[in-house]
Design a protein around this nucleic acid. Structure first.
Length: 290
DNA sequence: AACTACTCCTGGAGGC
DNA sequence: TGCCTCCAGGAGTAGT
């Protein structure tokens, strides 16, 4: 479930708590969690020299030119603790709650650092993957995904978005944005938020957007992601947004009034994903008045 | 090449 | 309470 803002927030928090630390113990109780090429014991003795993010990948740069590339997928969670229950950093899917006792049945890996702090990787649905590899292999690995530009980078613009959308003109705009080659790091929540902000219906065909709409959409994506990274990520629990927060604006808020026009937010399916819109702000198409 | 459907898993919510 | 179905912040893969 973590999208770009969640992974970036986690990265920043971990940078404060594990950077420079040496890993003194590592184990996994779920064999498939650690994908090829290297297994968790290759972490032991290495220290954390850097933490990077690309799209939804969290990349640990380790000493002796190795790296650990994590993808939390839908329900991965990382918790870094000092002692029994002092949480230093936590991020990803907040289920079970970040303050739940650890380890629990969804805990699949554990790292211990030289300051006796412990990092747990938990994942209820077991979709997350971790790859340990030589540092030189990270870029070739990421390149296989053909990831689009980072939305907060200079490389992302109305122009680059236009080029990305031209890849599938007959695809609805929502799945086109979920394609990590179009723009990297967006997921279901932030696509809904961006389309609402840009006032574009998720089923509009990507190729049908005019230049003004693409420009509006690029600005909306940048604003939504930027706001989440600096002002706090979306909080969604069991598919519902936290009622007393103003963000996200529409995702997880079926039946609530649109923050812009007060029309009731509706939910339906687009490309198999639960999708929230304001039917007034995001018209399906322009229909001549009879 | 591009799109859809299915797949990997578990658990919470809601209907009956 | 229990059983059932649906749904879930992702993305790889097989089939059309």
């Amino acid at each position: 479930m973590p999208e770009l803002p969640e992974v970036e927030t986690l990265r920043r928090d971990l940078e404060r708590t594990v950077l420079g630390r040496q890993i003194v113990f590592a184990e996994s109780t779920l064999p498939k969690l650690f994908a090829e090429p290297l297994s968790p014991e290759h972490l032991i003795g290495r220290s954390v020299e850097g933490l990077r993010r690309r799209a939804k990948f969290l990349i640990w740069d380790l000493s002796d030119d190795h790296a650990m590339v994590m993808h939390l997928k839908l329900s991965g969670q990382i918790i870094h603790r000092s002692g029994e229950n002092v949480t230093l950093a936590a991020g990803g899917h907040p289920v079970p709650a970040f303050d739940a006792p650890l380890p629990h049945k969804a805990t699949h890996a554990k790292l211990i650092f030289d300051d006796d702090s412990t990092l747990f990787l938990t994942d209820i649905r077991q979709f997350a993957r971790v790859r340990i590899m030589p540092g030189a292999d990270v870029e070739p690995f990421l390149a296989t995904y053909r990831l689009g530009p980072e939305p907060l980078s200079r490389a992302f613009s109305a122009k680059s978005l236009s080029v990305g959308l031209a890849r599938h003109p007959r695809l609805p705009i929502k799945p086109a944005l979920l394609d990590q080659r179009t723009v990297s790091g967006l997921g279901n929540i932030y696509v809904d938020e961006s389309l609402w902000r840009a006032r574009i219906h998720p089923e509009r065909l990507a190729g049908s957007l005019d230049a003004a709409e693409i420009s509006r959409l690029a600005r909306a994506i940048r604003a939504v992601i930027g706001r989440a990274v600096t002002g706090g990520v979306a909080e969604i629990l069991n598919g519902k947004a936290t009622p007393d927060r103003d963000f996200p604006s529409v995702h997880g808020r079926e039946g609530s009034p649109c923050p812009r026009c007060r029309r009731e937010i509706i939910k339906f399916r687009v490309a198999g994903r639960g999708t929230y819109i304001c039917p007034r702000c995001q018209p399906a198409l322009i229909v001549p008045i009879a």
